[in-house]
Nucleic acid binder design. Sequence first.
RNA 1: GGGCGGGUAGCUCAGUUGGUUAGAGCACAUCGCUUACACCGAUGUGGUCGCAGGUUCGAGUCCUGUUCCGCCCA
Length: 896
Amino acid sequence: MSEPTLPKAYDFSTTEKRLYEWWEKSGFFKPVSDPKTPHFDPNQKTFVITIPPPNVTGELHLGHAMFVSMEDLMIRHARMNGYSTLWVPGSDHAGIATQLQVEKMLVREGTSREQVGRAEFLRRTWEWKEKYGGMIYQQIRRLGASCDWDRTRFTLDEGLSRAVREAFVRLYEKGLIYRGLRMINWSPGLKTAVSDLEVEYSEENGTLYYFKYMLADGSGDYIPVATTRPETILGDSAVAVHPEDERYQRFVGKKVVVPILGREIPVIADEYVTREFGTGGLKVTPAHDPNDYALGKKHNLAFISMLDTSAKVNENGGPYQGMDRFDCRKKLWADMKAAGLVIKEEPYVIKVPRSQRGGEIVEPMISTQWFVSIKPLADAALEAVRNGSIKIVPERFTKVYYNWLENIEDWCISRQLWWGHRIPVWYCKDCGEMICTRQDPTVCPKCGSQHLEQDPDVLDTWFSSGLWPFSTLGWPEKTPDLDYFYPTSVMETGYDILFFWVARMIMMGIEFTGKPPFHTVYLHGLIRDEHGQKMSKTKGNVIDPLGVMDEMGTDALRFTLLVGSTPGNDANLSLKKVEANRNFANKIWNVGRFIIGTVEDAPKTASGKPDWTLADSWIWARLQELIRTVDRLFETYQYGEAGRQIYDFLWSDFADWYVEIAKLQMASGGDRAHYTAVTLVRVLDTVLRLLHPFTPFVTEELWGHLKKSAASLKDATPTDGWENALMIAHWPKAQAVEGWEEDKIAAFNRVQDVIRAIRNARTEKKVTPGKRITAIVAAGDHLSVFNDQRKSLTSLAYLDESQLVLTDKITSVPEGALSLLVAGVEVYLPLAGMVDADVERARMEKELAEAESQITRLRGLLSSDFASKAPAALVEKERAKLAAFEETAAKIKAQL
RNA sequence: GGGCGGGUAGCUCAGUUGGUUAGAGCACAUCGCUUACACCGAUGUGGUCGCAGGUUCGAGUCCUGUUCCGCCCA
């Protein structure tokens, strides 16, 4: 073969950047049918994904790497299958996260958000965004993402802001958005409301405080009450007991006195109270507890807010005013102890509501906020999944989805932040009119006043991301993109944002476009470390995808993420795995390198028609099987299994067996060499296509070389010719089964079994690989197969061809030969001096015993109901096995 | 409290209409630089598929119960 022009090991570092730039420059990332071009064909079927927008100033982590790999896989697969494929990239302004980063920067500068003011703060934030906002896109590119970068969107860009405005106004006009005083979760550190979803409950060691609620009548009687948050006593407006609790029935309707403050509050009866919990007496703080809030509404109690926006005690806290909530807890309790009101304290595990961001303890508070009446939207979103318009993969998440939407509460969408979409509502300072319009108002439509003031709040970031699948395509404008690409196809994202995002996109998609925004939701799992631990900076087990790519290549990382995961299940990632897949990339490279070199030296044409060898037929049949399997797996979203199948085929079937045999076939020269080269090229071409969505770089690079070297090889051209690039090449199409395949596969497997048996015997007898040995093979009915594969046998089992005897049956067993019985074939290895008769006899006896135990098992099986009830083909298979074991046993007996 | 997922080789995991000798990678052992690849090749060791019942001719796979781990919801 000619001097190899390709490096010995795949060099991803120089390849990846070059290929990516070429792909992008060539316009391969764009849909083949594009409304923005003159040759647009509206009838061309589409495949569309809108990217889960990462935080605009965020940095790439494995979660991103996961979704990018998965979506790029889907996108590349669809593109190769002829869809007009669009993957819309973009990012999210991430209200809280970004604002916090900028605030931190301001603090470092010795100033603050409040000091610089709102306008300046926003200017600085945009500056920050411009500076760091492009980073994540570069990092996504490194993963090979084939997004249409010309369609990149940002949730705060002009178009999307218009979409948000339109969505808000429509909901407002429909009466589905309202402003009201409600109980919400308040983050004292951020000084903003957060939604229910943004609160996480952690179990922590706390204390249950028992104390006396003294009756106001001066009788000295009291109701014992237990609480985990004593400071909220300052906001109590009732004590509740169960109506059938005979301990306290007599108190119902009387008054009790709030400790320290001396306020008188009623004792009420409600079945909500659990008699078994604590003392059975419940203090009710309607303004600081969601359950008490409901009780307060029901019993018409006073709502006493006792905390300010920093969670310090306010004027309702009397002597405690100005104290921090936790200081107040201590002080109040001490004061109560002094007043003789304390009964006891006991350790208690409490569920502490913490902010998803930052982890501070959030306070349930009453506050004026904006809400979406979610029920009508939720009902439509439920229906879309129930009637199959949207399918969730894996299916089990549909139950989770139903459960959440069926019990959904109104969505608090206002945030007391500056970075975000400002709520499009103005208040007239003169008449109090509330104005919500698509255009900024200048005069009050009611009184004509020009003293208008816009609501200071911004919208929850998820409000804008909920519009993402259609706002990115131009909605509310009726753009050609929207018309052609919407609804999108698949929403691929992590199951952790099923509620946050997926459900909201479905609700808003149906509400605003009348159509579900996608037909399939594919949920992937979370990436954990190699022992299943969540990655975190504090644990120090974070794997940086950029570092991994630097070290082992993008393909290795992608393949690991894609093949190492099953839909909806968390996946553990270890560098060991990535390393194994880097090796796989290198394997691909080297198989390709060999084939390219081989093809260059092969006869470019043949003088006659193809005369396929058993190995040729076998690999071809296996390849067709592979394509069918991979197609089936892709249809059911089993990408990991599909990748594994290709991996096994390429490494085990193709590289380990076919390529080795092909070397021999090439040595024959002439037509044999020509057609072997053709087979090598066609198999490699097909496998590279199948593999491309998983490992785009190494496959593209190699394919380019293959194409060049195989261009002049007659009969090797793919059905649709050699396309300009692998990424836009056609996906392989499996040939229909022609009937010969099964026999060829079985015949080749027999040859493999014999070769393996000989290799095994050699190793056991410690025959060095360099030593060629003699063999006599009595192949019976399979003789022609072995004659055909004579060279393969010789080479792969390291035999001495000049002494190899292939025959149908043997009359006398050679003296001192090792005898192997495999798949109905007898093999004798006359290993002079290496065979110990006693040892051999023992080995043969062991084999006989094994065969006989199988015979017993199979006879039992075949005489049971199995024979009559199992499918005929299966029974036949077992009968054949039995026959084979019987034959083996008979032959061993003859030798013993 | 309700729901979901997982428990398969030393480790990490596959195993999707139940088909009868359960697979891979890593690790380990022995051997080998045979001109694609030592990021390699050959061979081998290693599993009563959490436990107990059941359905079935046949169960890692379906059903019931149970235990441990994890997650979600309240």
